[in-house]
């Protein structure tokens, strides 16, 4: 019987296009996890995902309290959507979520980016989205390697054992 040889993942590209805490952290945790395993890792932030690498917004990300069926009250009771629309609720819930993550030793976004680049991971911003939101390189965190086009992004994804994940 022929033994199937394992083909380990060698390179991963994670694309983050949304600004909510859960979307950004999904990309960051997966990216950092890949770096920890010695996998070549690139993170690409586009559209609202740019909030995660913009100095002004990166550590103030929110989670949606309206239109989020997964939202629960502390204790597990359902969270009425109408409540989520009240002023200050989203900010409060988001602050609570960030606090809970901090308790689990999950770093804030800027520190997470630094951890990823410390291990050799690379962070990129989407050129088109940057133009759209009128952002410049100065608005972005220092750990961002470059602002690139879609074409340049695909050039980076060469070689066997490469995967692209859109979070």
């Amino acid at each position: 019987m022929e033994k199937e040889e394992k083909q380990p993942l060698k390179k991963i590209l994670l694309i983050c296009s949304k600004a909510s805490i859960e979307d950004v952290y999904a990309a960051l945790v997966m990216g950092n996890g890949a770096v920890m395993e010695g996998i070549e890792t690139k993170l690409f932030f586009t559209f609202f995902g740019l909030d995660a690498i913009t100095k002004k917004t990166m550590n103030k990300l929110h989670t949606a309290t309206t239109g989020n069926p997964g939202m629960r009250m502390p204790g597990g009771l359902p969270f009425p959507t109408i409540l989520g629309g009240l002023p200050g609720i989203e900010a409060g819930v988001s602050a609570m979520m960030r606090k809970q993550m901090d308790d689990l030793d999950i770093p804030p976004v800027d520190e997470f980016l630094e951890l990823i680049t410390a291990g050799g991971g690379e962070i990129y911003a989407c050129k088109l989205a940057m133009d759209m939101f009128k952002l410049t390189k100065e608005d972005l965190h220092d750990e961002v390697s470059d602002i690139i086009t879609v074409g340049e992004l695909y050039e980076m994804c060469d070689g066997p054992g490469t995967q692209i994940v859109f979070t």
Binding site: N32, G38, D105, E111, E114, L115, A118
Partner: peptide, 29 residues
Amino acid sequence: ETLTIRGIGKSGIVNAKEFYAMFPGAPLK
């Protein structure tokens, strides 16, 4: 206690970057 790269980076012995350099590839493992 749970071991994390962040925790090791804050140990005062090395920072995260040095840790990756000392144990290349998968440092925590």
